[in-house]
Every structure is written in structure tokens, then in C-alpha cells.
Design a protein around this nucleic acid. Structure first.
Length: 189
DNA sequence: GACCAGATTGTCT
DNA sequence: GACAATCTGGTCA
């Protein structure tokens, strides 16, 4: 079973919760790397001042306004990449930011790419997991499950906790951050 | 463990 | 010209 357009073409806050427990995989020449999604955040198109899509379509965020089920990768703070999954129909501008993974496969590759030995420190942050999985700007706009980036369905149901988002100033009071209850691999702060 | 500053560049005002 | 959906390494306790 594969997660199709129907799965992604829903409210970002619904998709964000449903993605918890699913597996994010990259299959690059270096090798395969898989992690379980344990933390996400939803970014909406209306009333969400911190969403990149809030000010309308720009060169940078055009992927967010594309069809659902695509990877939106952006560059920030002069040195970091973050991955999102686009939700809703083309032109809406909603996405789910993937904030943390629990390493499952290809851990040696992740360690090499990160230069860190501690497993708990490989994917517990949005910029860390992109580095571990080898994701960069060239993957922006890729269709998920038709390229080197794939998302696999969850193996078992998970217990979801809802809180406010992290690392932003505007609209930081909205309850749009979700993570798996009790999982040791989430980012903290 | 908690708090603080620095890195570094694309993008928007 | 200012700032950003962040991380790391330092200091102090």
C-alpha cells in the first residue's frame, strides 16, 4: 500500500497527525536511509503568519502552491535545509514540516553524513534530519514516492500529542505541532 | 542542565 | 538592509 494523492489532499493539520508513525526514506547512491516520523508541524494558508505561503506565491515557496504529495525543501539561516510535504490542492499553499525522525535503517550512513555518533542526535530536528537523509535544495519539488524520496505507511497506530510550534515568532500560539507520545527522538527546546 | 552568541546566505521589504 | 519554520559550541552553575 502506498499513500496516494487522496492522503495528502486534506487539511495540513490532519495530514500532519496522520504522518506520525509513517516512514520517510531516501534512496540515494550512497545508500538507503529510513526514519520513522515522530514529530511534525502544520503550516496553513490562512491566518498563519509564520507560514511561507502567507504572503502569497513567491519564487521561493512556489512548491508549496503546487499539487499535494510533493517535497518542499527550503534553505534558511544561511546554512540549513528543512523538508515539508505539500498538502491540499494546487494553488492552496499548505504544507507539513517534518521536524524529527527515529532512525530505522541506514544509521551508519546518517552518522557519516552528520559526523555524529549518538543515534538520538541524528534526526531530532528539522535541519538535522535533512542532513542525515542527504536531502538538499536539488530535491525541492520532487514527487514523493516517484523519486529518491518516499514516505511509507505506518505499521501501527500511534498516540498523538498536540502542542504549539517551535522556532517561530508569528502565530506561535497556534496548536499545530504534533508528536508521538513518549518518543525519545523528538526535538526539545 | 540552562542560557547565550555566532555562523552565513537567500529572499523579501 | 533586515531577518529567517536552526544548530552548534561556548560559559556558568
Amino acid at each position: 500500500m502506498k499513500l496516494g494523492t487522496k492522503f495528502y489532499n486534506r487539511d495540513a493539520k490532519v495530514v500532519a497527525q496522520d504522518l506520525l508513525g509513517c516512514y520517510l526514506m531516501t534512496d540515494l547512491p550512497e545508500g538507503k536511509a529510513i526514519g520513522k516520523i515522530v514529530e511534525t508541524e502544520a503550516y496553513l494558508s490562512i491566518g498563519d503568519l509564520s507560514s511561507h505561503s502567507f504572503r502569497g506565491l513567491t519564487k521561493r515557496n512556489r512548491t508549496m502552491f503546487g499539487p499535494p504529495g510533493y517535497a518542499y525543501v527550503y534553505f534558511t539561516y544561511g546554512m540549513h535545509y528543512c523538508v515539508n510535504v505539500v498538502t491540499r490542492e494546487k494553488g492552496v499553499g499548505e504544507a507539513v514540516l517534518i521536524r524529527a525522525l527515529e532512525p530505522v535503517e541506514g544509521i551508519d550512513i546518517m552518522k557519516r553524513r552528520r559526523g555524529v555518533m549518538d543515534i538520538k542526535n541524528l534526526c531530532n530536528g528539522p535541519a538535522k534530519l535533512t542532513q542525515s537523509l542527504g536531502i538538499n535544495l536539488t530535491h525541492n519539488g520532487y514527487c514523493i514516492n516517484c523519486g529518491p524520496i518516499a514516505i511509507l505507511p505506518k505499521a501501527e497506530p500511534v498516540e498523538v500529542v498536540t502542542t504549539t510550534r517551535i522556532g517561530i515568532i508569528k502565530s506561535s500560539d497556534l496548536p499545530l505541532r504534533f508528536y508521538i507520545q513518549g518518543n525519545p527522538y523528538i526535538s526539545k527546546r
